[in-house]
Amino acid sequence: MEQINQSCFYLMSFLAIIAIRALYVLYLTGKPRRNKSQQPLSTLIVLGSGGHTAEMMNLLSVLQTDSFTPRFYIAAATDNMSLQKARVFEDSLVDKKGVKGVSAQFTQIYRSREVGQSYVTSVWTTLLATAHALWLMIRIRPQVVICNGPGTCIPLCMIAFLLKIMGIRWSSIFYVESIARVRRLSLSGLLLYKLHMADQFFVQWPQLQRKYTRAHYVGCLM
């Protein structure tokens, strides 16, 4: 009996520590970082598809890429175009600055569910996708995560948050809601907003900012 009580106590203490740590991480989320060293930060860029990728490329083109180095691009395995566009962008940097060496990596990630896939098989594909995301995130351990939906970014942001709680890697998460969202957030956006996971959350229309007051209104990216 005593033994059970004891292990129960340990378990409760363990859970309490995790809960306190999670609250502490949530408290720090959204607080600016004091990066006095000005060291470049490893950056994960999660690409959507089509319009999402175009918006992300517009953002990357005005970001000082030297500060966000090395860069890891992730796109859905079914999306052949987005990584191609990222490669063209990275090549243009090399041409412009004559930078040598590999400062960018491109990876495809399994999606948990394809359009039209049955829910039964989704269970397995979701597990597979989560394991893949976990493996990628542990390998990359980015200091900065930039994403603009759609769904691909959710497991990656969740894992980034988990790595923060476990003290493995502190990352700053930035989310830009798509220009297509004028009145309502996307599901990915809503999740990240409600769960307070993004350090900064950007919207492109003033109507949305009025509804989600923690968001920053930044005007149109396109």
Partner: peptide
């Protein structure tokens, strides 16, 4: 996208 880039830079101390 410069407003976004500015806010990100500011947040990270760049």
């Amino acid at each position: 996208a410069t407003p976004v880039a500015k806010l990100i830079n500011h947040f990270l101390g760049f």
